[in-house]
Design a protein around this nucleic acid. Structure first.
Lengths: 139, 139
DNA sequence: TTGCTCCTCACGTCACGTGAGGTGGC
DNA sequence: TTGCTCCTCACGTCACGTGAGGTGGC
């Protein structure tokens, strides 16, 4: 086997670290989803062990929670990536603050739209549920 | 080309008939979705023209509307097929009335569960939307 | 050393989207 | 006859699920 650059990265941040299974347990997601989120550039582990095990920090868990909040609103992983990136920029007080603020503002508008849509769907769903119940009773 | 049994089926039921485009317009679905629902056994056209055009009746439009109500609740097409079939049985007063009623009752329970879940998701989504708005304001 | 956890492919699935190339309806 | 609508493949996409075969962590 070639030396696949199994770099052991000591996480620069302090605090507890987790293997993928612990993150899955804390969030209720599958291992596959977490790996898929890494592939999509959404939740990158802070490092890897010498053996290749993903090392996550609390920051990663926080990002997963944002993803789980965006899911019901029907955002794509690519959209989530954009928002998470913008939120990062706002937090780290780096460059492109204005750009990031604009992106977050855009998502705030989108989120409200989707909330309205979700409320409509709930109304439809409740009507459907009621209809089914009455269908049973009818003879 | 072999005689592919291009059977011209005069719809037995009375009332207006539609080509697929008209059904799409009335329901807001794509042509592809309607064809997919036929493949899945959900919405079968009442017949075909000699040239192979799908002929839909108002009954089909009704079935599509049920599908669109079930969508927000996250039911699979297979589940929708089961429910539509059971509702058909209840309406046509044919055999297996009890079985059909049981199926509808099951779906009524599932629908209520899903409604609760949808309400939870809405709550989460609204909290997320609020958070985004406050993130913009913060400096 | 034994298990349990983790790893990377890589194909499968569900509900369609999206052309390509051809033909019917009025 | 001209257009617009419809037809059937058939491959693509998105967000993962699901093994297969192998190895790390304690």
């Amino acid at each position: 086997m070639e030396c696949e650059a199994a770099v052991q990265v000591a996480p620069a941040t302090e605090g507890p670290t987790y293997f993928i299974g612990e993150v899955a347990e804390r969030t209720g997601l599958s291992l596959r989803s977490l790996r898929h989120y890494e592939e999509a550039g959404l939740v990158i582990p802070a490092g890897r062990t010498a053996g290749g095990f993903r090392i996550y920090t609390d920051d990663a868990v926080g990002r997963v929670r944002v993803i789980m909040q965006m899911k019901p609103l029907g955002f794509s992983l690519e959209e989530m990536r954009l928002l998470l990136s913008a939120l990062d920029t706002l937090q780290t007080s780096g460059a492109d603050q204005d750009q990031a603020r604009e992106t977050v503002a855009l998502f705030a508008v989108l989120a409200e739209e989707r909330c309205r849509h979700l409320r409509e769907q709930l109304t439809i769903a409740e009507a459907f549920s009621t209809r089914l119940s009455s269908d049973i009773g009818r003879r």
